[in-house]
Simulated scan of single mutants.
Amino acid sequence: MSAEQGTRTATAHHVVILGAGYAGMAAAIQLAARTGRHGAVRVTVVNAQERFTERLRLHMTATGQQLAEFAIPEMLAGTGARFMRGWVTAVDADARTVRIDDVRLLRYDTLVYALGGTADTSAVPGVEDHAYTLNSAQDAELLADRLVRLGSGTVVVGGSGLTGVESAAEIAERHPQLNVVLLGRQEPAAAMNPRVKAYVGAALDRLGVTVRSGVEVAKVLPDTVELAGGELVAADAVLWTSGTRVSPLAAAAGLVVDERGRIVTDAALRSVSHPEVYAVGDAAAIRQGYGVMHGTCQGGMPTGVHAALSIDRVLKGKQPKAFRFGYYHTPVSLGRGDAVVQFTHPDDSPRRICLTGRAAVRYKETVTASPWPTYGRMKKMPASGAFWPRGGRFTRA
């Protein structure tokens, strides 16, 4: 590195992005594409592993299906963004520092906090010790190995939300010799319109999934799930999909958080207590006209893009714009050959319009395909515009 380059690096505005999931990668690539090449801005992405996790497809990984693997450094190649592998162990929002693996200290001028949510394994006794999760590809692979070794027996999926439904259907289809039991407080697809709800129920029945709604898991034991009331359900393996939690690091850093530990943001996605910190994806409590957004890839990637645009505007001496987002659809796979797509109002309430069967499969595979092509287009975007992922739309900065 020349002396001139070293001076430019030392004085460059340093943006640190914590987390390289859908939202974090969108922020990193969008920001680096706009600012990273001219040297005035440095972008560093911190993540615990080099492998990019396609969370939308982890239920496939959990049944032994081989998916393409993407390395985060390769995805960032050509953008100018730097990758740092390590666990974020502390954030000091007042000193503007991040501690990595308890040994390295990273200073920032602007922080993008994108540490996503994970399955909540603390709310029910025994889940942490005896249940599998879909928190990472490695976790999903552990379950896949267990299912292969089982041969026969009972797999209990705890949680009847969409992740639980997709996982139960996938396991039942790929391992028809297993007895799959889906447990949850609500019926599967309870928030969808009656036609979709009935279709999901019929698909699970066709696949041989035993659905028990209106129940609550009280404890998970090595080979049993205990329900509230004392009933025992035999389980050779338990997959836990009920509820999510976020990292406690934001609260510990002194950032204002909501009751779930998510960073409370202003309209531009900045922390209300520390405006040099932007929060995106599952880590953020982002209020829209219809309420606070819930964590999905559908909303996560746009938050990452908007944070990048906001940072770019601030660095140019402009005011950031307010973030506006409305939901559009809820795609749900029911094995490899079946699916439903519930189209929604912007507040995520269901419309009457839906797709089922092969048409839904084609639609879902298109909209939940690997984000790699989307990120590739972000790298090549014109300087005057920004790619808005998953919607095929462009917005101006």
Rank of each mutant, 00 (worst) to 15 (best):
V155L: 13
V124T: 14
R270D: 01
P194H: 06
A81P: 08
Q186Y: 09
A81E: 04
R260L: 14
T89E: 09
A169V: 05
G208V: 08
V220W: 07
L207Y: 06
R393E: 14
A234I: 13
D347A: 00
L334V: 12
L58G: 13
H175W: 05
T118G: 10
Q298S: 04
M293I: 15
E69T: 02
K219C: 05
C297N: 14
P373V: 04
K219V: 07
A26L: 00
R99P: 15
W240C: 12
A307D: 01
V15A: 04
A114D: 10
H59K: 10
K318H: 12
T241N: 13
V181H: 03
M378L: 09
I286F: 05
R358N: 13
S167F: 10
A218L: 11
T265F: 02
L255R: 11
V256F: 04
E187G: 04
V45N: 02
E187S: 15
E74W: 01
V41D: 00
V233R: 03
D347F: 02
E128H: 10
P320K: 07
G391D: 01
P176E: 09
A168C: 08
Y328E: 13
G317R: 13
T395D: 05
V211H: 08
D348E: 09
G117L: 12
A140P: 08
D92P: 09
G214R: 04
R245N: 04
K321I: 09
H38R: 05
H59V: 04
T395G: 13
D92F: 12
I311D: 00
V314D: 11
T110Q: 08
T79V: 14
N193K: 04
A267E: 11
I17L: 12
D101Q: 06
S242K: 03
H59E: 11
G214L: 12
T163E: 07
P188S: 06
R362Y: 02
R99E: 15
R336C: 05
P382E: 10
Y22H: 14
A251D: 08
P331T: 14
D312H: 01
V200M: 07
L221D: 10
G151D: 09
K219R: 15
L143A: 04
V220H: 00
V112N: 10
R262G: 06
P73A: 02
L134K: 01
A234G: 11
S213G: 11
A40E: 14
A308K: 00
A48N: 15
L115Y: 03
L249S: 06
Y113E: 05
A23T: 09
Y327I: 08
H306C: 09
D258Y: 01
G117T: 15
V112G: 07
E231V: 08
G214V: 04
S242M: 02
A40R: 10
R8M: 14
A386V: 05
V361I: 00
S242C: 06
C297M: 11
E4I: 06
V88Q: 01
S349L: 09
A253H: 02
T344S: 08
V257D: 09
G376H: 01
T374D: 06
G300Q: 13
R57H: 15
D347C: 02
G243D: 04
D205P: 01
T7P: 03
F325K: 05
I353C: 03
G254P: 11
V196G: 07
S2L: 15
V238S: 14
T303I: 13
E226W: 07
A203E: 09
L150T: 13
V98I: 02
Q288W: 01
R351A: 12
A168Q: 03
S384G: 15
M301Y: 02
A123W: 05
C354R: 02
P320M: 07
